[in-house]
């Protein structure tokens, strides 16, 4: 498989503390890679290292199959980035801000209007960025990142501080990019719901360590579902089910059925009714990805 980003034992020390600890990232071409972790887990530091803003303490990085250390400038020519809070020059207009970057990346002037249109800022093009709302500044940041038609787009918390409609808008924009332009995207967030809605591959980092890296489907597999029964005499009901060869678990006074086919549920209910047990509720108990995320990061904390 062709990896756009591949890191090997990437580590960064701040003083004595390891902010990033032996992280191996692998991002296949054309994927939207969701980089997930609680605040302070080392996401931003990792991203800064990938952009050459910080030097890793050890480990190496290959982007587009080239070594970042020796070919930083050639790599960055094909990378667009937005790191944390958007950076801008408040005393300049949106257009001038983009022009300041365009001159360096060397693309034709028409690109400025194109990217402003992409992020829907064309009406504010000649206004000073000072007066922009946070959402507009964030969109300007994305416009700057898109200016050089990057093959790899790195977005650090791009929806931070946006209102719900802004989040949806940015999400739709990001989702459309790989298809339209064949971009590979690395997007970080501390919100799983955010990543859940756009990412195709997920990496979870906590305390500087990568604890999960696979496709989003794999992650969803962890979200196993159960049928939850609330009954009178749960102890007796559970024994009755087990005695009849049905898989059931007892948890906090509830019975959990792991086999969720309609037929199986019906049989279980019928059996319990015949035993004279009252059934109060039959419901689907879906473990959310949030729970998995919390569980994973908690386990890591305990260990």
């Amino acid at each position: 498989m062709e990896y756009i980003i591949q890191t090997n034992n990437l580590s960064k020390k701040f003083g004595k503390e390891l902010a990033v600890n032996g992280v191996d990232i692998q991002i296949p071409k054309g994927e939207i890679y969701g980089f997930l972790g609680p605040n302070g887990a080392g996401k931003s530091t990792t991203i800064r290292i990938l952009l050459g803003l910080m030097k890793p303490t050890f480990g190496n990085i290959a982007i587009f199959g080239k070594d970042l250390k020796s070919e930083r400038i050639n790599i960055l020519k094909k990378v667009g980035s937005l790191v944390e809070n958007p950076s801008y020059y408040p005393h300049l207009t949106a257009k001038e801000n983009l022009e300041a970057i365009r001159k360096i990346v060397g693309v034709p002037k028409t690109r400025i209007d194109e990217v402003l249109k992409t992020v829907r800022l064309q009406d504010a093009a000649n206004k000073k960025v000072k007066g922009f709302s946070l959402g507009m500044k964030q969109r300007l940041g994305i416009a700057s990142a898109l200016l050089n038609k990057p093959e790899l787009l790195i977005l650090d918390e791009p929806t931070n501080g946006l209102d719900p409609s802004g989040i949806i808008e940015i999400r739709e924009l990001i989702k459309s990019l790989p298809e339209k332009y064949g971009m590979t995207i690395l997007i970080s967030s501390h919100l799983l719901s955010e990543i859940d809605q756009i990412a195709t591959t997920v990496g979870i980092i906590t305390k500087g360590k990568m604890i999960f890296q696979d496709s989003i489907e794999e992650l969803r597999m962890f979200a196993q579902q159960h049928i939850k029964l609330k009954v009178s005499q749960h102890e007796r009901a559970w024994r009755a089910l087990l005695a009849n060869g049905m898989k059931a678990e007892l948890e906090d006074g509830h019975i959990l059925l792991s086999d969720q086919t309609d037929q199986h549920v019906a049989e279980a209910v019928q059996l319990l009714v015949q035993q004279g047990i009252s059934i109060y509720r039959v419901e689907e108990d879906k473990k959310s990805l949030e729970d998995i995320f919390l569980q994973m990061t908690k386990e890591e904390l305990a260990g």
Binding site: I73, L76, K77, I101, I104, S144
Partner: peptide
């Protein structure tokens, strides 16, 4: 951080 992440 924006300036230094450009190809220069």
């Amino acid at each position: 951080k924006q300036l230094v992440a450009l190809p220069i």
